[in-house]
């Protein structure tokens, strides 16, 4: 076996990627928006994939992109979109001093791990040229199905567990009969016929109608001039991002009740300034 020579190009690659990856990772500690963090981490994962390939792990590099960046991080983004709610997070401490303690222990961990690897007299790197003779995926596959075959089979249990778990936490059994659109409509009309509310029959208003504000975070206004809260999507409401409607009286005093054009009808993005 001959020693491994590491090309200068790899060094350059490392020194470009590594700072970027650390920066991306730091977003975990300092960024406020969850989505930003997720995207930064996805970037770190891609960086890792490149490093794997540089480290003669072609198969892993590709798997990293497919599994981590493609599946895992996208699943995260998906859930963030679904959960959405507190996409920003207050960074104030709940336990006094906990942050410092955590930072200190993390720093200690970094120093410890760094010291351990830098101070160790590591053997001369061998490189994987010999091991990868039949191409990296083939060599990896051989190991998977020989030395690690038991672990491989065992991961099957893991995947089944994951599927069963995710299903049982999210899948709802339908109780009672299925309600289709037709029965729904008939029921509505029946209720209306029995003296129910007329608004049940017609569609509910969408947000931002009546021209003055046509963005999705502005409630619709009913005939009496009151805002219809349900017209805004739940996500915005839970986030607290819906906008308050000026009261009908205020607007009437200003001389332009709902339905009439503003005194100075806003154009384009100026709308926001007027609100503010």
């Amino acid at each position: 076996m001959t020693g491994l020579t590491i090309s200068a190009g790899e060094g350059v690659l490392f020194w470009i990627l590594a700072p970027l990856m650390v920066l991306g990772a730091l977003s975990l500690l300092f960024a406020r928006r969850t989505v930003h963090i997720a995207v930064s981490i996805a970037g770190v994962m891609v960086g890792l994939a490149v490093m794997y390939i540089a480290n003669e792990a072609t198969f892993l590099g590709v798997a990293q992109v497919v599994v981590y960046t493609g599946a895992v991080m996208m699943l995260f983004v998906f859930v963030i979109m679904l959960v959405g709610v507190d996409s920003t997070e207050s960074l104030t401490e709940t336990l006094r001093g906990q942050r410092w303690l955590a930072a200190l222990s993390a720093l200690g961990l970094a120093i410890l791990l760094g010291a351990v690897v830098t101070r160790a007299v590591l053997p001369e790197p061998v490189g994987l040229a010999a091991a990868n003779a039949d191409s990296n995926p083939v060599a990896v596959a051989r190991l998977v199905f020989s030395d690690f075959v038991f672990a491989f089979e065992l991961t099957g249990a893991l995947l089944i567990t994951a599927a069963v778990g995710a299903l049982s936490l999210t899948h709802r059994v339908r109780l009672g009969i299925k309600v289709d659109q037709r029965t729904l409509a008939e029921a509505k009309l029946k209720r209306y016929g029995a003296g129910g509310d007329a608004t049940l029959v017609v569609n509910r208003p969408g947000p931002g109608v009546y021209a003055r504000h046509n963005s999705a975070d502005m409630p619709a206004v009913d005939a009496a001039g009151n805002p219809v809260e349900e017209s805004i999507t739940t996500v915005l409401r839970v986030r607290g991002q819906e906008r308050e409607l000026p009261s009908a009286e205020e607007l009437a005093d200003a001389g332009h009740p709902y339905g009439s054009p503003a005194v100075e009808a806003p154009t384009g993005t100026q709308a926001k300034e007027i609100d503010a």
């Binding site: 892993l60 599946a71 490189g127 091991a131 190991l143 690690f148 991961t155 893991l158 567990t161 994951a162």
Partner: peptide, 24 residues
């Protein structure tokens, strides 16, 4: 790469699988 031994890569591969299940 340092040891010239592929089992490290295989372990990393398993970790990915495990991580995927864990994420779910």
């Amino acid at each position: 790469r340092m040891h010239g031994d592929l089992s490290g890569q295989v372990i990393a591969f398993f970790v990915m699988v495990v991580a995927a299940a864990e994420v779910v």
